Amino acid sequence: MSSPLFGGIEAGGTKFVCAVGTDPDTLLHETRFPTTTPDETLRRALDFFRAIQRETPLAALGIASFGPIDLHPTSPTYGFITSTPKPGWANTDVVGFFARELGLPIGFDTDVNGAALGEYRWGAAQGLDTFLYLTIGTGIGGGAFVNGRLVHGLLHPEMGHIRLPRDPNRDPFEGICPYHGDCLEGLCSGPALAARWGQNAETLPADHPAWELQAHYLGLALATFICTLSPQRIILGGGVMNAPHLLPLVRTATQQALNGYIHVPAITEQIDAYIVAPGLGNRAGVLGAIALAEQTWKERSSL
């Protein structure tokens, strides 16, 4: 009997990535396209999976979505993207759409929780039971894996919206978050960098003052998460982290923010192995969605 195949959707605010497979070495089909309107984007993803299902049955679909989203199965809006600031996407029933159209079990979680699950299965978090995955890109979000489980709770973690101390004399930029102004996302996301410096992050030279300031804020944020969650490792993904000089700066800034308080070798001596890039690279999200699908299928199969 052949192994079941799973579909995965990394539903990002900028682009959707859809794939079919079982693991990083067995991705049989993959496509990506811009996130436009809900109807156009969801139907484009549906067409991709329908075409595959005509040839090969899928066992389940996993969706790792931008948010905020409703993760509570008993809620009337379970599976919805809820109060997102992305125009046109508030109150979009993502899970219901694919469940009706494909007739498959659906695994659903945040995009960063999905990426965290992918890293746990196949990437930089293998063998750990408590770690943190952060994406620094169009938005900023965090997925927490604590004692072997993804964290949900009241809603789900929104780590991109923690408040940071900002010195207006050093940094007069007031941030771009429509809710909080100078929260972590409002200061450090890709759009925030573009708004502050007048050019996109990928065009900023390595010696630009943007990077020291970026690292300073990210170091403050990571110090907060370390003190709060005590993760065994922190994984930093997202487009902004593609700048090769940024990760070493963030490691140093995190040590400076902690100021010796968390005195363990992982931070004081082995920081290069503690704050790391994703082991799965830019495929962490879609592979995490496939892991969500597999997890859901196994749960259904055991009932």
Rank of each mutant, 00 (worst) to 15 (best):
T22Y: 04
K15C: 00
A90M: 03
F98Y: 15
P57I: 01
E40D: 11
L102V: 05
F80Q: 13
E30Y: 09
P24S: 10
T22N: 11
P85E: 07
L61G: 13
G67Q: 02
P85M: 10
W122C: 10
L71D: 05
K86N: 05
P38Q: 13
G62C: 15
F49R: 09
A11N: 04
G118H: 02
E10P: 14
W89A: 05
V95P: 07
T56F: 10
T77V: 04
G88Y: 02
A124K: 06
E119H: 07
F80L: 03
R50N: 13
P38L: 12
L104W: 06
D39A: 13
L46R: 13
L102S: 07
A125D: 11
P73D: 14
F97H: 12
R32L: 01
L128G: 12
N113P: 01
G62P: 15
T77M: 01
D25T: 14
D129A: 05
D111G: 07
S83H: 08
G12F: 00
G79I: 02
I81K: 01
E10S: 13
P87L: 07
G67F: 01
P85I: 04
G103M: 10
I106M: 03
D111Y: 03
I136A: 07
P38E: 05
R44Y: 00
P76L: 10
R121T: 06
L58P: 05
T84F: 03
L102E: 09
E55V: 06
F97N: 15
F131Y: 15
A115Y: 06
I106R: 06
T35L: 00
F48N: 11
A51M: 09
W122S: 11
L61W: 11
I63M: 13
P73I: 12
T14C: 00
E101C: 08
A19S: 05
R32C: 01
T22D: 04
T56Y: 11
L104Q: 08
I63F: 14
D47F: 08
Y78H: 11
F80C: 10
F80H: 15
T35E: 02
G107I: 05
K15Y: 00
S75A: 14
F49Y: 15
E10V: 03
R121E: 15
H72S: 06
T22C: 09
A19E: 08
D23K: 07
G127D: 09
G21P: 10
I81E: 03
R43K: 12
